[in-house]
Amino acid sequence: MKRLCFLGNSHVAAVRLAIGEMQEYCVAKDVEIDVFGSQRNSLRAAEIKNGVVTSSSKFVRNNFQWTSGGMSELDIGRYDEIVVLAGLSLFSSAHYQANAEVPFVSSGLADAILAHRVKEDWAINLAREIAQANRSVTVTHIGSPLISTQSPRAKKFISSYHEVGSEFGVRAKQLKTLITQKVAALGESNFRFSPPPSAALEDSGFFTEHVYCQGSVLFTPEANEEHKRDDFSHMNAKYGRLVVEHVLS
């Protein structure tokens, strides 16, 4: 049996909802899945002690408890793979864009941007520390979802991307290839970065189809309240399902 764990902030809500509807799938795949989540940046207060991810913050421990169904600490060695769903995805175009423009990004510039992101992002650092704490566990950073195609930035991007004869689309494709190569090279030992599930993304690969954003639920134990209509960063259970399938594929 494979033991899989998702750790993250509010973005784990989509996966948590999805696995509630994926019991048969999990049995068929012989996989057991746990979810640990705590809102926003509260996981900054997480620390790794004696092989477990814990926190001195009661808020975080309480959140871990209700999201995981009773565990206030994440025992790293209990899992074959831990997937981190927090922090900006390294596959987002946002890091490389300047205003609405997609500039030409050289290899050296991409390296500098990625190095800065990796250094500054607490979620990536947490994922890396977990990987270092237990080399027999695979740790994958997916990060938060790429924003919805209906967000203002995405709309502008997609419009320019599909403009006939535009160099924007050419550069965006070059950027996609460059990011994929560069981020793959950042993996080390049992730690890797993964893009979000490609099935959830629109043509350019930089945004999530809005169908996976509609009806996204708030990060609450009851999961009975939707995000506001202009929330383009949280996803629904359909997206959560794709993430689970993507990780297990």
Partner: peptide, 16 residues
């Protein structure tokens, strides 16, 4: 007309 990408560390803007 060529602003720095948002993800580039401010201290590296000039060197690029």
């Amino acid at each position: 007309v060529e602003p720095a990408p948002m993800g580039l560390a401010p201290e590296l803007h000039q060197s690029f």
